[in-house]
Amino acid sequence: MTFQQKNITVSLASFSLILAFFLVRVFQMIQNDTFIATNVFRLWGITIVMAIVTTIIGTILTHIVSAIIEAVRTQEEPDVEDIEDERDQIIDLKGTRVTYMVFSLGSLLAMLTFVFGQPPLVMFTALIFSGLVAQIIGDATRMYIYRRGF
């Protein structure tokens, strides 16, 4: 497994956990009748900060752990293959395209909830939900292309 694949795996796992956290918090708010603007926007902020922080920390940790495993395995100076070559870039672009497509569809559905008389909070919640789902599907696509071979 290359560094890029490990990075995608970490991203996939962290965004899945963030999505799970987001859904649990939304359902808790609905159950407790605390689905109000302040709480929803706070959750927005927490989710976005978590996404940024886990992406950065995930990349750094992946690099460090890969280097340690490589050093232990080979008993030599670690040589982590962290370059992104043309094939990685093409796969990344394909994943990004899927991410944008899913997010565009999600955004449209979010707008439709507003059109069909739902409160704006539902639209904002659906918007960030579609963003997280889009990222997960994009990462899954990248992983699938790496596994299948391209």
Partner: peptide
């Protein structure tokens, strides 16, 4: 200047 995975592919 590419990864081994690219050569394999």
């Amino acid at each position: 200047g590419v990864t081994r995975q690219t050569i394999i592919a």
